[in-house]
Nucleic acid binder design. Structure first.
Lengths: 410, 410
DNA sequence: AGCATTATTTCAATGCTCGAAAAAACCAGT
DNA sequence: ACTGGTTTTTTCGAGCATTGAAATAATGCT
């Protein structure tokens, strides 16, 4: 049942959140700009920013040379996040490597640790230990920043259980069912959150392209896996892991090619790197998928397909068909205004586009409403990091700092 | 960009909405119960209900005999909607008939007009005329109630355009692209809204079963068409037609059976009544679908299948397979806590269940998280009406009555 | 009739927002 | 150097909604 949302304290919290959100989205800006951006009155902005400055969450920036053309009148004082107000530790765990980044409250990267990962990594070292060790290393290198740590966020691939039970399945060996979240949480006494990589991709795309910020977008990652995240006009559904999907494991063809997940006929089994290679080399569909594919091998195949080599183009056609039918089926359930293709496979977009469009054209929604715009982006790493970063910092904004702690400080 | 949500007026509006919502969901109740249900203080409830009573939106009910067991203390005064506060006209348009219901603000059915519809109906009579005529008839029979008309809502099948452009495609002949919404809107000077039938089904299920009210549910209609609506913990995405899907026209098999929509291989082409009959009678898949199927024929087929007749059971197996793979594919994108099967086809659920489960088992999400609970409901008419009714009345609550018009009205 | 119990209303205090007016801070031109 | 114009912030008083606690109402029970 709906619950109260609105005594006068909630109003304040809400408006603080609005201000922090505006700063997060648009960067440092003047109070006047904040008033315009949030719709609040100048008077309220003054009160709220004074509050936030008192609590050292934001600070006035040094006067910048004016860039906005205005030359007359009192110059604006920009306010922006106080970088020392807090920090977050962000893990991105992949099949081939793990990366831990320390960022401050302003979103600036402070330090970073990269570690190669093999299928044996988490067999030898329990995940909780692995994460803790790296956090300790980070702490020893950045004692000051780490003292203000407020959140640990982890990006993983796989399926998150229905009720916050963590990873129930993952292509990263020995990571599923490992109780590292609770461990870290208890050890550190901090909120630790787990995010699906595909979902962060969508989140990141939203932050990287302002046009997408409030749109509904499906972001498809094509590479060593096939994944998809969705955003709906600015918010995922059901707070939690809303927007996360298992697109790569949507069935493309009953009883079809063997997938890494053990099922048969998944889209990924045709469109992820290993699937494309398998097709190109005429390896039987039921052959066990290669655990990892060296990127130069995949790149090489793209090059050969672009040069017109039959087996290669055929493989990418197959991949395109799988993705296309998958999108066409998805659109029967949810039809986004934008579709983004990202990841290593985005480079092969040209090779798959024909089949994708053909499959999409057979969706009733598309025939009636027209094909959605599909765009390929070639950088896949930063969207994930960006998504993890912005999602975590926004969470700190709203959860830690928006419920005003004790009224005006001092 | 996020905009202001919260000056003190919005707080009032918000809380009025909470009160109206609680009354809508839980029916007439005491102020004390409202306080508990909304989380507001008794003092606020007093103020808000006084306001609402002043504006004649709600009224104190006659003392009812106590049923709650409490026998001591001051008896509660129940407040409930003032039925005369407004009315709504609800059209349910189907392939075979149209129904117009007049309901008052309390949700009580006042009058109803039913009209058979044929494929020629809207060829002879423009939709706008058809609707207007019936509204006029209703007005002549209920001048008083119709004077308080606040909304016209129409339930249709088909695809709604992306930007409120109305029906772009519909299985109801000559209804797509007809500008009846704007016409009615201008003629009546009232908001006229169009709803997808499948979406209302989900909405209705939510209101009919309290356990589903705040859950995420996929409601599948199986009958003359196959349709699906989704709810996400109480709210559709993207306000508008969030939760609407084109599930029936999700592709089941590339280049498969011919569907009424003109495409090939849609789920509907296998699982709607005409599809099942076509399979049962070994009519070629590419044969043009029957425009309508008499319900006794469909029922008869169910009976024969239940009696074990081969052709019939095979047809329902096919249908189950189409629905099952469709659900399995849907679950890769959105996995609801409940799946409801409703409509005439729900009676055949037992015949399809095996194939549905088999297909679902091949979804990774299901293998990992377990199969979702699938339940068949046998009544399909009332959920649609209920959905249309509650959605429209809630809209009046929130849009017309929550933004308090002019402060206390003497 | 008086007491216990439950439902509502009254009252005074608190906090937030807002609009308008005042104060600041800076540029330009004379 | 000084005055006027312009743009940004802050200050101030008013208006409102909420809240907890205390007061008031309305019954049943004994």
């Amino acid at each position: 049942m709906a619950r109260k949302v609105s005594d006068s304290d909630s109003v304040r919290r809400q408006n603080r959140g609005l201000v922090l959100g505006a700063l997060r989205v648009q960067g440092p800006q003047s109070r006047t700009a904040l008033a315009a951006g949030t719709g609040l009155s100048h008077a309220s902005i003054t009160a709220i920013t004074a509050d936030l400055i008192n609590q050292q969450l934001i600070a006035e920036l040094e006067a910048e040379p004016r860039v906005d053309g205005r030359t007359r009148g009192r110059p604006a004082t920009l306010v922006g996040f106080e970088r020392r107000a807090g920090a977050a530790a962000l893990f991105e765990v992949d099949v081939t490597r793990a990366r831990l980044s320390l960022v401050d409250y302003g979103g600036v990267l402070v330090d970073r640790i990269e570690t190669p990962v093999t299928p044996l990594t988490f067999a030898h070292t329990p995940a909780a230990v692995f994460f803790t060790e790296r956090l300790e290393l980070l702490r020893s290198r950045n004692p000051v920043a780490m003292a203000g740590l407020r959140r640990v966020a982890i990006s993983v691939q796989g399926i998150l259980g229905r009720n916050d039970e963590g990873l129930v399945w993952s292509p990263i060996a020995h990571l599923a069912h490992a109780p590292f979240i609770q461990c870290l949480n208890e050890t550190l006494g901090l909120p630790v959150s787990l995010h699906k990589r595909g979902r962060l991709l969508a989140e990141g795309a939203r932050w990287l392209d302002p046009a997408l910020h409030d749109a509904s977008v499906a972001t498809v990652f094509v590479g060593s896996t096939v994944a998809m995240g969705m955003t709906f006009g600015g918010q995922g559904i059901g707070q939690g892991n809303g927007g996360a999907t298992e697109f790569g494991h949507m069935n493309h063809m009953p009883n079809g090619a063997l997938c890494r997940c053990g099922m048969r006929g998944c889209i990924e089994a045709y469109a992820a790197d290993y699937g494309v290679l398998r097709t190109a080399y005429s390896v039987p569909e039921t052959a066990h998928p290669a655990p990892t594919v060296p990127s130069q091998e995949y790149e090489g195949l793209i090059a050969r397909a672009e040069a017109g080599e039959r087996a290669a183009t055929h493989a990418f056609n197959q991949a395109g068909r799988a993705i296309g039918w998958g999108l066409s089926r998805m659109m029967a359930v949810f039809d986004p205004a934008h579709i983004l293709i990202v990841g290593p496979g985005a480079r092969a977009f040209g090779l798959m586009q024909g089949e994708i469009s053909a499959a999409l054209s057979s969706a009733l929604v598309c025939r009636v409403n027209g094909l959605p715009r599909i765009v390929a982006h070639h950088d896949e790493k930063e969207p994930i990091f960006m998504g993890l970063l912005m999602k975590t910092l926004s969470e700190i904004d709203q959860l830690d700092f928006a419920p005003l702690p004790a009224r005006t400080g001092v």
